[in-house]
Amino acid sequence: MQIRKLTYDDLPHASALCLDAFMIAVAPSLSTQGVETFAKVAAAQAFADRMEGDNLMLVCVADGAITGLIELKEGRHVAMLFVAPGSQRRGIGMRLMSAALEQVRDEVVTVRASLSSVAAYESYGFALSGDVGEFAGLIYQPMEKRLP
């Protein structure tokens, strides 16, 4: 298992992984608008556009395939974290989170967690930091982690 930066060649696979995991774990609880919003954010071209900015995107590669992805925005906000449905509960999310946290440039890391991922973020040391919110059909729980 290797953690490395996302490359342009990875984009189709990374996008597909995020969409697959999202459709299983998150989409059933959202409106059509929320699913459409996420599909735009997780499109390969949207990833490519964000790669040009201040977003760190890391992937986990196992047996030649991308099994997980994390995106850290502006060195302080987890914008995305997905593990392939067939690869979950094997420590991939924890390894991606640990690698991303090494790159954090602030004392507090934030995330707008999907409701189905709150328990996972709590296991990574995040705590609830506000009320459930909604943006463009995406329902989220604000969370944060204070770093030592």
Rank of each mutant, 00 (worst) to 15 (best):
D54K: 09
S87D: 14
M57W: 03
I70P: 01
L96K: 02
M57C: 12
F82S: 09
G86C: 13
P85T: 14
L96N: 09
E71V: 15
A65M: 12
V108G: 02
I70A: 09
M80T: 13
E74C: 09
T67K: 00
L101C: 13
M97N: 05
L56P: 02
G93I: 10
E52F: 03
T67N: 03
E74M: 09
H77L: 01
D54A: 14
G93K: 04
A100N: 01
G75E: 02
Q103I: 00
V83N: 03
R95V: 04
L56I: 10
L81S: 11
D54M: 06
E71A: 12
C60V: 01
A79G: 14
K73E: 14
A84Q: 03
E71F: 04
G91V: 07
N55F: 09
E107A: 10
V78D: 01
A65Y: 04
Q103A: 11
M94V: 10
R105G: 07
V109C: 07
A62E: 07
V59W: 04
D106F: 06
I92V: 13
V78T: 02
H77M: 08
A62D: 05
R76G: 15
M97Q: 12
A62Y: 01
M97C: 06
R105Q: 13
L69D: 03
V78C: 06
G64F: 08
A79V: 08
F82W: 07
G64T: 09
S87L: 12
I66Q: 07
E71P: 03
L96Y: 03
